[in-house]
Write a protein that binds this DNA or RNA. Structure first.
Lengths: 343, 343
DNA sequence: ACTCGCTATTAAATCGATTTAATGGAGTGA
DNA sequence: TCACTCCATTAAATCGATTTAATAGCGAGT
């Protein structure tokens, strides 16, 4: 059944065990497995037999020490968990992660999940990865700085605050215009924009598109910024106050889904009907948007495609065949009409 | 700013660079970092200073070669993707993964996502992990066999088909009884059970509880098994045929959410109203159940808690402080009443 | 003064792979 | 026959950490 004492002693077979069994040197086994150099056909056959016989599985850590690559990609999001997680912990990040995991594995890369945490530095110190997917980073994103210092390849999903970074463009402008036009078409003439208070490109672009629409339509623009860490509660308070000051509000543009459910709570508290009195639209078409009553009109961002684009861009950055500031564009967003806007 | 030529040459600092800078040996630096042995207070201070100065981050692969541990846990699901993923790729697995990632990181473990794939063997060969979370394994689960051969520690979520394996008990029996009682209370007197065709403990236990109810209430039991790979379509066909043969059906117990949405499609096709003509209940309260119209009555399985239980059990199995057949019990399931059952 | 024990430290071995530089043999051409 | 190239293979160096076994220094006990 076997060759040496060591190999029989129950521990995992090593490349040397295989080499001994096949009557070759470890280097040759390595070449046969990785394909780094040619190996004679007959020799290769003996090696393959030995591998099968010893049930050999290469030690990936040992390989990584030499190659300097660990074959894994991290998905990072520093969005406060009040927003990114919520009760069911699903959402934007997990939807991307699910598709990214599949795309990654097709390139023999593992996908590791790095949830938002109080101490990002200590967290990253213990997780090995060759590159990272960073989800909609804010300007003061704690992960971003760490990754820069480590000079780890990064691809952002969504335009990053400083544009000197490879990313997948999520078409923030087109998405906002889609939502605004729909709000307008569904009869809304006076609607505030509710966004988070941190400095994200998505907020900036959204605000810009919103203000453009307002001036064009002669609507008085009202941009409400809610601290992200307050989550739903902050949005609820915000809409209540806004309606108190201006009862004529007949719609709300609230791109972040967690803030949207907060708005819905506020409207229920005030006894306003949706979509009768107020039409509500949000951006991300996730669990929250769909299980709200009534369900929220949202946008299909094609996140499965986006995840695939991000992974292949990242792999190219890691390999050095793409610049560290290359940009790819997500497919055009598509409106998903639901009852919250009268659809 | 630095010490040796090598350290200045732009490459990542190693433990030797730190040692040189602090005027000690690499072994002492290692001891200071890992806490394996005592290190004098003053020495430690010099080492900490050197670490900060050189921006040293330990090479995790090198560490792993020695320790034999890689500090990561895989989440595996071999449920065919027609069921586990679906359009939006969310679901049971991702909900567990999200909470498990947080629980894992709190123990300095990374969580890697391993989606269902055509070639499980090749997949696992390239992913390093110390232990695995296996989601509701079937009897012929391809991952299970691989993990056994590698003698990798595993914890199943949900009772596995052969019970010789550590797992978190998801209370299949109690869950089914909850759903059946609710169906009965909502007026259903003749309802089939629709489950997948593969050999899972959840199906077996569910079927048993269902048959017990049937004999007790004098209802003719009808258990319909749908091939899992056919997903929604299979369930739609199944309910259509069942209603054709027996128009008196006034409810459906369909625990798998992907099959439940198939049933809803079938009922729409036949023009049956839900919950008016037929009451429908499912088990997993995910995206599908919530975004169905009308939304489906389901069960809160407390998956966030379950994920935490699974991770800590797995860590104990890895450490050897828990038997490879230990069982922990999930919190009792709670009914989530929705319109599909008239709630 | 001498031994014993204890602590902090170090030099060297080790983990399991990849990669480099060296080697031997076969084939070619003059 | 000799010199030369080409090829598959190997021995040894290497990656960066941890761990073992050895050592120096010091204080206490007799």
């Amino acid at each position: 059944m076997n060759t040496s004492d060591k190999a029989a002693s129950g521990r995992r077979a090593t490349i040397s065990d295989v080499a001994r069994q096949a009557g070759v040197s470890p280097g040759t086994v390595s070449n046969a497995m990785t394909g780094a150099r040619r190996v004679d056909e007959h020799t290769r056959a003996r090696i393959d037999a030995a591998i099968a016989q010893l049930n050999y599985v290469p030690n990936l850590s040992a390989r990584s020490v030499r190659t300097g690559r660990v074959n894994s990609i991290a998905v990072l999001s520093s969005m406060p968990s009040a927003v990114s997680a919520g009760t069911s912990r699903l959402g934007f990040m997990m939807e991307i992660a699910a598709s990214a995991a599949i795309a990654a594995i097709e390139h023999n890369m593992a996908l590791v999940l790095v949830p938002p945490l109080p101490d990002p530095e200590a967290t990253l110190r213990n997780i090995p990865f060759d590159g990272a997917l960073l989800i909609e980073p804010a300007r003061d994103d704690p992960f971003l700085d760490l990754l820069r210092r480590r000079s780890t390849p990064v691809v952002a999903i969504g335009t990053p605050p400083d544009s000197t970074m490879a990313h997948v463009d999520l078409n923030y402008g087109a998405t906002t215009e889609l939502l605004i036009r729909h709000l307008h078409d569904s009869g809304a003439r006076c609607f505030p924009l509710i966004i988070g208070a941190s400095d994200r490109a998505s907020y900036a672009v959204t605000e810009q598109a919103y203000r453009a629409h307002a001036t064009q339509q002669g609507m008085r623009p009202q941009v409400i910024r809610v601290p992200e860490h307050r989550g739903e509660g902050g949005a609820r308070d915000a809409i209540c106050q806004a309606l108190h000051e201006n009862p004529g509000i007949d719609g709300v543009l609230v791109p972040v889904d967690a803030l949207a459910t907060g708005v819905m709570q506020g409207l229920r508290d005030l006894g306003r009907s949706v979509p009768g009195d107020v039409r509500v639209v949000t951006r991300y078409d996730g669990l929250r948007a769909r299980s709200e009553v009534p369900a929220l009109t949202a946008v299909d961002l094609h996140l499965d495609v986006v995840a695939g684009q991000a992974i292949s861009l990242l792999l190219r950055v890691v390999a050095g065949t793409a610049g560290a500031d290359e940009v790819v564009h997500a497919p055009p967003p598509a409106l998903v009409t639901r009852p919250s806007s009268g659809g």
